[in-house]
Design a protein around this nucleic acid. Structure first.
Lengths: 167, 167
DNA sequence: TAAGATTGACGCTTCAATCTTG
DNA sequence: CAAGATTGAAGCGTCAATCTTA
């Protein structure tokens, strides 16, 4: 009667969540203390830095981030307040707006990425063998892909490799 | 100059976070709609169900859950309000208190676990081969273990296998 | 009427301070 | 004074409703 409480599948899922929580906590602490950025700020700034002309529609940004539309609005509000981002109305469709990276925001993310990569190297890369990393990637891709069975079919698949890059 | 923005290590980390976010979102939705439980509620109830006499000190519970002490206090507050848990003062050390699973709470988690296992089967187990799962487990364990270099040395290690089981 | 984006209200978690007991 | 636990204040993200434009 107790056996179901110790099912090995629970253990695998628990391990997944525990590893994630620990990794996220460590990385976020480093980003916060050394760069003054939350994970969400880092992610948004990174996406904008990669984008053509350092700008993205709010809608495009939402699709690349782990946030709801309203959540993104709030994050961009704060980034704008901090001077890292500016909003710009979309000329062709005046309902929409762009988030645009400022030079200050660009400097910030340029400084943050190498630091973040160092942390990644320590906590994720160096602790795994090349085989481990490959196997991890394969498994994670399968899990991720099995999750989007009916959401945004085309764009999601062609954009999968870039969409996979976060934090 | 743009190359650092597309470092493959960022992609692996991003894939990790994306897979986690998707998995967590899906599982939490199922738990919420079919069992009326948040991930935190499920986790606390599961730990208590496994524990001797269905009870655990708040401190022990904190060590097993992804929450701060104050966060756990709030969750137990709500679980108590819902009738799933009761508090009990510790006789030997009157500073401490136990969280005790009620029969109602026990029934709830007993019903929830099989449902959750079904969801796990669909989203995590069935989408991976046996080799994938083994490799995933190995990699996640390495990442997790590399994260606790100086935190709670002994108890953590002997308790690692059980502490790994969450949500 | 629908799409893009934002806002108000709410719930949850954390940090720092507090209270009680050892 | 330290340990166990809780509380108040504040920050963040989500849902539902709203506003503007297509």
């Amino acid at each position: 009667v107790e056996t179901v409480l110790h099912d090995e599948r629970l253990a695998l899922a628990g391990l997944f969540f525990e590893a994630h929580a620990g990794l996220a906590r460590t990385l976020e602490r480093g980003l916060e203390t050394e760069c003054g950025l939350s994970a969400q700020w880092f992610e948004v700034l990174l996406r904008l830095a990669r984008a053509h002309e350092q700008r993205l529609r709010m809608q495009e940004l939402v699709a690349q981030v782990t946030l709801t539309p309203s959540g993104l609005t709030r994050v961009v509000d704060r980034l704008e307040e901090a001077g890292f981002v500016e909003r710009e109305i979309c000329a062709s469709d005046r309902r929409g707006s762009f988030a645009v990276l400022t030079p200050k925001g660009r400097d910030c993310i340029d400084a943050a990425v190498p630091i973040h990569l160092d942390h990644l190297e320590e906590t994720l890369i160096r602790v795994l063998s090349a085989q481990d990393r490959d196997a991890l990637q394969v498994a994670l891709e399968k899990v991720r892909d099995a999750l989007h069975p009916h959401e945004r079919a085309q764009v999601q698949s062609i954009d999968a490799s870039v969409a996979a890059e976060e934090v």
